[in-house]
């Protein structure tokens, strides 16, 4: 927790995918912080507690200076006298925390998140890994089923004019990349990643209508959702030729 908001980091047990979730302080009804605070929490316990709250309930998260627990108070909005309190004890994550190096990416594309979710799902049916190539003219997502020899490919062409950008999902131009594309392109880049982890990242489509894919050769793939209250990033470690 910092004066800007809450930053959350989580990683899978094989250290292939890391999630970084930032919630700006503006997404909270009130946000008070005396000093920066770092907590390690078991995500299952936190999720279990938060699921006890209904959509309209008020959740207050509290932790003191040398606290060992995060206290979650759940209050019914129209019955403020009705409060339930739950403690989520901190755990020692030790080496499970990673410091993410901020690197300049060579290429970035932004596509409709529902389309991205569909391509991840479809390619996952074919193969355990896929290749992503971004060249000046567009992007290509390819998966090959080694057994049957079947190859699946989704191609996105760079939008030629800014007008191709539409805010409404219904007006989605077929296969077009939103115009931000060319601004972030430095050189042709390709990466191979596991489709399983891409599917996982693509499931967050309800957060934002657009998703960005950022790449640099031999570096983790970054899948990023920007939304008003914050940003959700998935870093996926690549598969590299032996």
């Amino acid at each position: 927790c910092s004066k800007e908001g809450i930053m959350l980091q989580g990683m899978d047990e094989f250290h292939i995918s890391l999630v970084e979730f930032f919630l700006s302080k503006r997404s909270f009804e009130s946000y008070a912080l005396c000093h920066d605070l770092c907590m390690s929490l078991p995500i299952d316990s936190l999720a279990t507690v938060l699921k006890k709250a209904n959509d309209d309930d008020v959740c207050t998260l509290k932790a003191g200076h040398k606290a060992k627990v995060l206290t979650v108070a759940i209050e019914t909005r129209d019955q403020p006298w009705l409060v339930s309190k739950h403690d989520v004890p901190f755990i020692d994550l030790g080496s499970e925390y990673l410091v993410i190096s901020r690197i300049p990416y060579d290429a970035k594309i932004t596509v409709w998140s529902t389309r991205f979710a569909r391509l991840a799902h479809e390619l996952h049916q074919l193969s355990g890994s896929l290749d992503i190539q971004i060249i000046h003219e567009g992007a290509r997502f390819t998966a090959l089923d080694e057994g049957s020899g079947k190859k699946g490919c989704f191609i996105f062409r760079r939008a030629k004019v800014v007008d191709e950008y539409r805010d409404s999902e219904d007006d989605e131009p077929a296969g077009a990349i939103i115009h931000e594309f060319h601004r972030y392109f430095h050189k042709a880049t390709s990466l191979r990643v596991s489709t399983k982890y891409l599917v996982h990242a693509s499931k967050r489509a309800p957060l934002s209508s657009k998703v960005s894919v950022l790449m640099k050769e031999d570096q983790p793939l970054l899948v990023q959702y920007d939304f008003y209250e914050g940003v959700l990033k998935f870093y996926i470690a690549p598969r590299i030729a032996d």
């Binding site: 250290h15 292939i16 990673l98 410091v99 983790p220 470690a237 598969r239």
Partner: peptide, 14 residues
């Protein structure tokens, strides 16, 4: 052959 890399080879531990 392709080898799955771990994020620990890219990002450092504090």
């Amino acid at each position: 052959a392709f080898k799955q890399k771990s994020l620990t080879s890219f990002f450092s531990k504090p």
